[in-house]
Computed example of a mutant assay.
Amino acid sequence: MHRRTLLKHIAAGALAPMALTINRMAAARETPLRVIVPFPPGGGTDVLGRVIAATLESALDRSVVVENKPGASGMLGADYTANGAKDGSILLFAGLVPSVRYYARPPEEVLKQLAPVCPIARSPYMVAINSDLPAKTLDELIAKAKREPKGLTFGSPGNATPQHLATELLQAACGIDMLHVPYRGTGPMMTDLLGGQIQLVVATVAAVEPYLKSGRLRVLAVTSQERLAKYPDIPTVAESGFPGFVAQIQFGTYCAAGTPDAAIAALNAGINRALQTDAVHAKLAEQGFQPTGGTPAQLQTALLAEIRDVAGLVQAGKVRVDL
């Protein structure tokens, strides 16, 4: 074979995988972007996911469809994404650690399942109780909990969800021991809090706020470093006698591991554009969220750090990961 012809064949062979990847990415862009929310409709994750998804259509110039795939504390949605298409057509929207199962693994194992795409937003929590409970302050609640170990119940959207972890951290800081009741999402958890089946939740502003005006809930504290501008009369946990206590929920987006870097970069750029719009800023602020944005590397760093931070709760037996 002539040398020039041979070089052409070699070049064509080398470019073939790249061309295949580009073709797959182009095909993926023609299909709707499926945003997977691993919790039921109505909760903080769902609300935030839909706000972002609504803006992504114009930011990415493609149609976007939100799909709720709840179950097993976020595992079903995370596993669905991890086992799905690796072309950037499926985007998981979840808390910083999207699946309880990952707490039982070495942190780096998570990256073999999901590829970080973009940090989204963060929000402090509200410590909310059913208004039938006589406690008017966090101190009064703690005193009651100490008098009645396991006598008070707290809810979470599921075992080892960020809300569950935040409540366990609060219990550890306050020296109390309440009974955990996990639910299949924020919606049913809030329903039972209103009904008195549970007494307390540590939940996002988005989850608690709709029920404040009814008087059926009472917020004792917020977990931010400073008081919330929207609720200046509610003290922080730190102000309530626990200096330095801060807890927040953070959200991010993920694709299946093995998704081409170019597809992830395109999604990251579109999400960051969406987060910078005035409309998204306003809607997130209404729900108590602060947009973050950033790079896949920043999300990866935060994700691995949170997994390591939770290791102590797992080892202490406060969190089960054998679902």
Rank of each mutant, 00 (worst) to 15 (best):
G195L: 15
A82Q: 02
T21L: 14
L56Q: 08
S89D: 06
A121W: 03
E286A: 13
L193K: 10
A135R: 02
P106G: 10
A115D: 08
D322I: 05
C174H: 09
P162V: 05
E148A: 11
T236C: 04
A160E: 05
L91C: 09
P162A: 14
A207M: 06
C118A: 15
P41D: 07
T259Y: 09
P32M: 03
T31Q: 15
A279C: 00
V202Y: 02
L33F: 01
V201I: 13
E286G: 02
I120H: 10
P134M: 07
L303T: 15
K69P: 00
L114M: 11
V205Q: 11
L15A: 15
L169S: 12
P70V: 09
D278F: 07
A72I: 09
L200F: 08
A229H: 10
A263G: 03
H180M: 02
P106Q: 14
I249K: 03
Q298E: 15
N272P: 08
A143S: 10
D192N: 14
A16S: 12
G317M: 01
D139K: 14
A72K: 12
L165C: 09
T55W: 07
K86A: 11
L304N: 10
A26V: 13
R273I: 01
M178N: 06
A285R: 15
A274W: 12
Q287G: 00
V219K: 09
L220C: 08
S131E: 12
A128R: 09
G77M: 08
A12I: 10
G312R: 14
A302S: 13
V310C: 02
T204Q: 05
T186C: 06
F242I: 12
A94W: 02
G42T: 07
R101I: 04
R273W: 05
A94E: 03
L323D: 09
L60D: 03
T45Y: 01
L7K: 10
L313K: 01
F289Y: 15
L194M: 11
E67P: 04
E226Y: 14
P17M: 07
L193G: 07
D46E: 08
V127W: 05
A145D: 03
L194K: 13
G244L: 08
A72T: 03
E306V: 06
E306F: 13
L33K: 00
D61V: 04
I129D: 02
E57Y: 01
Y102L: 14
E108H: 12
N159I: 14
G288S: 06
P40H: 03
G196T: 12
R308M: 03
P98C: 06
E239D: 07
G252S: 08
F93A: 06
A160S: 15
N68T: 05
D278A: 15
D61P: 00
P296L: 05
A285I: 06
A145G: 07
Y80V: 00
G151D: 05
L48T: 14
F93I: 04
G293M: 03
L200Y: 04
L111S: 09
D61Q: 11
P107Q: 11
L194H: 07
E108W: 11
E209D: 13
F289G: 01
I271N: 07
Y231L: 06
R122G: 09
L7C: 04
L56M: 11
Y231T: 02
G195H: 13
L165I: 15
T223A: 03
L133R: 08
E57P: 01
E57I: 02
E109L: 06
R29F: 04
A172R: 15
K136N: 12
G215M: 03
L267H: 02
L217Y: 13
D309G: 00
G241K: 08
